[in-house]
Amino acid sequence: MRKLIVLLVLLVLVGCTDDAEDIGIVARVNDAPIYLSQLEFQHDQFQVDNVGAYVPSVDKLRNEYGDILADLIVQELVAQELARQDLAVTEKDVRTAEDAVRADYSEGAFEQVLVEEYIDLKAWRRQLRYHLAQKKFFHHVLRSKIKIDYKEAEKYYRDHISDFYLPESMRILVVRGPSRELVEKAVETYLKDKNQMDLATAFGEVETREVMVREGRLSAAWRNAISGLEPGQASSVLTDRFGFETLVLLEKSSAKVLEPAQAYPLVEEALLEQKLQIAFDSWLTQALATARISVSEHLLAQAMDSLGQEPPEQENEAVQGYEEETVPAEQDQTDSGS
Score class of each variant (00 low, 15 high):
3 K>Q: 07
3 K>T: 07
4 L>S: 10
5 I>P: 00
7 L>I: 14
10 L>Q: 09
11 L>C: 11
17 T>S: 15
23 I>R: 12
23 I>N: 04
24 G>M: 00
29 V>W: 00
30 N>K: 07
33 P>Q: 07
45 Q>M: 12
51 V>Q: 05
51 V>T: 07
52 G>D: 01
53 A>R: 05
55 V>F: 04
56 P>E: 12
58 V>F: 06
59 D>G: 14
61 L>G: 09
61 L>R: 09
64 E>A: 12
73 I>F: 03
74 V>Y: 07
76 E>H: 13
77 L>G: 02
78 V>C: 00
79 A>I: 15
83 A>M: 11
89 V>P: 04
91 E>N: 09
91 E>G: 14
91 E>D: 15
93 D>G: 01
96 T>P: 02
97 A>P: 02
100 A>Q: 11
108 G>S: 05
113 V>T: 06
117 E>D: 11
119 I>V: 10
121 L>S: 07
130 Y>P: 04
134 Q>G: 09
136 K>T: 08
136 K>H: 06
138 F>I: 13
138 F>V: 13
139 H>K: 07
140 H>M: 10
145 K>Y: 03
146 I>A: 00
147 K>Y: 07
148 I>Q: 01
149 D>S: 05
149 D>C: 02
150 Y>T: 14
150 Y>G: 04
152 E>L: 12
153 A>N: 06
156 Y>E: 09
166 L>K: 11
168 E>I: 10
169 S>L: 02
174 V>L: 11
175 V>G: 05
178 P>G: 07
179 S>M: 00
180 R>K: 14
180 R>E: 13
185 K>E: 08
187 V>A: 03
188 E>V: 12
188 E>W: 02
192 K>R: 09
196 Q>Y: 04
197 M>P: 01
200 A>Y: 03
208 T>V: 14
209 R>N: 07
212 M>C: 12
216 G>W: 05
225 A>V: 13
226 I>P: 03
228 G>A: 01
228 G>W: 01
230 E>A: 08
230 E>P: 09
242 F>P: 00
245 E>S: 09
245 E>Q: 11
247 L>F: 03
247 L>I: 01
247 L>R: 00
249 L>T: 00
250 L>Q: 06
253 S>A: 13
260 P>F: 15
262 Q>Y: 01
271 L>A: 01
271 L>R: 06
272 L>E: 03
277 Q>W: 10
279 A>M: 02
279 A>I: 07
280 F>H: 09
283 W>V: 02
285 T>D: 10
290 T>K: 06
291 A>H: 10
296 S>D: 12
297 E>Y: 14
297 E>H: 13
298 H>S: 14
298 H>R: 15
300 L>F: 15
303 A>K: 02
303 A>C: 10
304 M>P: 11
309 Q>Y: 15
312 P>F: 09
312 P>A: 04
312 P>H: 02
313 E>H: 15
314 Q>P: 04
318 A>P: 07
319 V>A: 11
320 Q>I: 12
322 Y>T: 03
324 E>R: 12
324 E>G: 06
326 T>M: 15
